[in-house]
């Protein structure tokens, strides 16, 4: 119970910190970086549900991110739609496309699935890049409006955008938390462990996999839509493979299949790469080795490594306790026996 309270305290402190952060820094650039990091985290959570909890490594995530972003951008700029209506529609479009692609791609497994989705992601990128009349091709789309007013609240300052994204991030974390800690989440984990076993204990694996694929693309679309209205300009490169691998790197560093992993990994990498910006592309010379070492020694990332360490320590303590109890019991028995004899 103490552990739970402690965990709760940490979460509360983090949320409070996130809320007061803009007042601490007062630096618009930092707020900008943080908002972007939050957007990435939402996408990483989507990827985590699918790759981390269900065991299906999708490499099409930048594609769905771009679909969300472009849907919002096109609906607001070309169709002149109300922002929030376009926002909701963008999420629906991404999810529906996710469902269609999921129906096909989920017929494959493991590395075949990864390669298939890699191709799907690239095709999405190509479609965006080449469909000049709709997407503007390499020129991209400009003049995407900021999020529309909600009653008296306006979203045209960096701080207000920061809070809007934070709001969506908190909802994302809550939803993912609840999914993971429910029978539905247990079902996904069972599929990850062994799809054959999951099916024999009566789980409709295709239905569940499709569901999680759609949720996963939904979050990618959400991140994309927020990105479009935050940056206000998008080009086809947001759908490129590098974005997928960025998301994946955040997830692996933070801890794949853990709840805190996406937050830890994304914020850590985004800040470290900010600090190392003076190195320009040579940054990768630092990132590469660190990432390799991390994957070798902590395959479940920072968060996963910590969880394993804690579990091991707990078990050690428990074993020691059992041993002590046994010793005490045997000591009591011998003393009782000697009393009897005496």
């Amino acid at each position: 119970m103490a552990g739970l309270l402690k965990q709760r305290n940490i979460i509360a402190v983090l949320i409070v910190f996130a809320i007061v952060f803009p007042f601490i820094t007062n630096n618009n650039y930092f707020i900008h970086i943080m908002t972007l990091a939050f957007i990435w985290i939402i996408g990483v959570y989507g990827l985590n549900l699918l790759a981390g909890y269900t065991g299906y490594l999708s490499l099409a995530h930048a594609g769905f991110f771009a679909i969300g972003a472009y849907s919002l951008a096109l609906l607001t700029t070309k169709a002149q739609m109300n922002y929030w209506l376009a926002f909701v529609l963008a999420l629906i479009i991404t999810s529906v496309l996710g469902m269609i692609i999921g129906l096909i791609s989920l017929r494959t497994k493991e590395h075949f699935f990864a390669i298939y989705t890699l191709c799907v992601g690239y095709i999405i990128y190509l479609v965006i890049d080449k469909w000049d009349s709709l997407t503007g091709g390499v020129r991209g789309l400009i003049g995407i409006p900021a999020p529309g007013n909600i009653g008296p609240i306006e979203f045209n300052t960096p701080i207000s955008n920061y809070y809007l994204v934070l709001f969506f991030l908190l909802i994302t974390v809550l939803v993912v938390y609840r999914i993971v800690h429910s029978l539905t989440g247990r079902t996904y984990i069972a599929i990850r462990n062994s799809e054959d076993l999951a099916q024999t204990i009566g789980i409709n694996t295709m239905k569940n996999k499709l569901m999680v694929f759609v949720i996963s693309t939904f979050f990618a679309g959400l991140a994309g839509a927020l990105y479009a209205s935050f940056i206000r300009f998008i080009g086809p490169d947001i759908g490129y493979i590098t974005i997928t691998f960025d998301l994946l790197t955040y997830l692996i560093v933070g801890g794949i299949g853990t709840l805190s992993g996406p937050v830890i990994g994304t914020i850590l990498i985004v800040w470290v790469s900010q600090q190392l910006q003076f190195l320009q592309d040579y940054r990768m010379m630092i990132f590469g080795p660190i990432l390799t070492l991390l994957v070798i020694f902590y395959p479940r990332g920072i968060s996963g490594g910590f969880i394993d360490w804690r579990a091991k320590r707990k078990e050690k303590k428990q074993n020691q306790l059992n041993l002590e109890n046994q010793q005490m019991l045997s000591a009591q028995e011998t003393s009782a026996a000697s009393n009897k004899n005496g």
Binding site: S182, L183, T184, G185, R186, A190
Partner: peptide
């Protein structure tokens, strides 16, 4: 999870507890 097949709760139930 072995008893999951005898239950009906879905994603909606999970999100809204």
């Amino acid at each position: 999870v072995g008893h999951r097949l005898r239950t009906k709760s879905n994603l909606f139930d999970a999100i809204f507890r």
